[in-house]
Design a protein around this nucleic acid. Structure first.
Lengths: 189, 189
DNA sequence: GTCTATACAGGGATAGAC
DNA sequence: GTCTATCCCTGTATAGAC
């Protein structure tokens, strides 16, 4: 996300995202953000109302971009099972391409700021998943469980695997495919 | 955890845990912790070397207590499937009994302090789960996948469901049992 | 052991020149 | 729009009396 920031506002957002991703929120001081962005501290306030507003703006941009990438990569498929796999890979590939965005999203979710922002990083994608679940249940291939329960077998394991991957764990492509199949079995009738 | 703190050191730990759980790490200032514990700010440093040391002590105590509760509730069962269900319920019940401990553990995991501490809240339980996986694979009832992949279908969904439960979501007992069964299917051959 | 008072550093935000 | 300089506040930690 924002991998090639052009405007000063973007540079500040990228800088804030990187600091939070690597060293946490406590390290994301206005001085550190401005320094990494290559501008003076006062300049930050010409582009963002406050530090918190800047961080929330980062999260909003991230949400929008993740949604865009995942949906773009998600051409419609015939079976629900195929749609499942494509969506899983879409999220996986999107975050693989930007580990910094991933780490920021994880930390932001456990920060009180997220309460005042509301909605997860996958807010928009959730409705796609919900539709998939509804279709699968109508066809009788997905268990008749509440969708919020089923969702917990999709995003959380996926995020956990990404976290391990960024920590240096390497799996084979066959392992990844097997993981997708295993997680699908939590849904399948 | 530390639900009835007696010593001053315990009172400080419980106070810190509650503040982090409800308002995040940024709100856990030495002044706020001391105030909630009912002691003076300077007293904090008679019982803990620094604020960070206090927070890490909280995490260690939490890990130990969660391990103790879960293992105590986990009498050996005949089948791997039964052991799975008992362990799942053990973690669920333990955190249900102390939402504050749960929220603290979640936040701590996304805080840089956790890197210098190392190991997740379920570090000790992980070896139990690993043994269960090994047994199940030997018996041919669990997929021959790397155990770190299989683990992601156990803890992350469970934590996610707990989080939703604390946010006010209510499921029937049948839903919970069905969720356990669904998650088991991600492991089962 | 606990308190009050305080030293010291660092962070958010603004003023005003350029 | 960007910079430098600075204000004000808060936070961590310590000193020293009781």
């Amino acid at each position: 996300m924002l991998t090639t920031p052009i405007t000063t506002a973007d540079k500040l957002m990228r800088a804030a995202m990187e600091i939070v991703a690597t060293d946490g929120f406590a390290a994301a001081t206005t001085a550190a953000i401005a320094r990494k962005a290559g501008v003076a501290e006062g300049t930050l306030y010409r582009h963002h109302k406050s530090k918190d507003a800047l961080l929330i703006a980062v999260y909003r941009a991230l949400k929008a971009e993740v949604f865009e990438h995942v949906i773009a990569a998600n051409q419609d498929s015939d079976t629900v099972r195929d749609r499942y796999q494509h969506l899983w890979r879409g999220v996986w590939d999107t975050y693989q391409a930007d580990p910094v965005a991933f780490a920021f999203a994880q930390r932001f979710g456990e920060n009180p700021l997220s309460q005042q922002e509301g909605g997860s990083a996958h807010e928009a994608i959730v409705s796609y998943v919900a539709q998939m679940i509804a279709d699968g249940q109508a066809q009788g291939v997905i268990r008749p469980l509440p969708s919020d329960i089923l969702m917990t077998f999709f995003f959380p394991p996926l995020m956990s695997l990404l976290k391990q991957a960024f920590a240096g764990r390497i799996w084979t492509e066959a392992d990844i495919d097997a993981a997708i199949e295993a997680s699908w079995q939590a849904w399948a009738t």
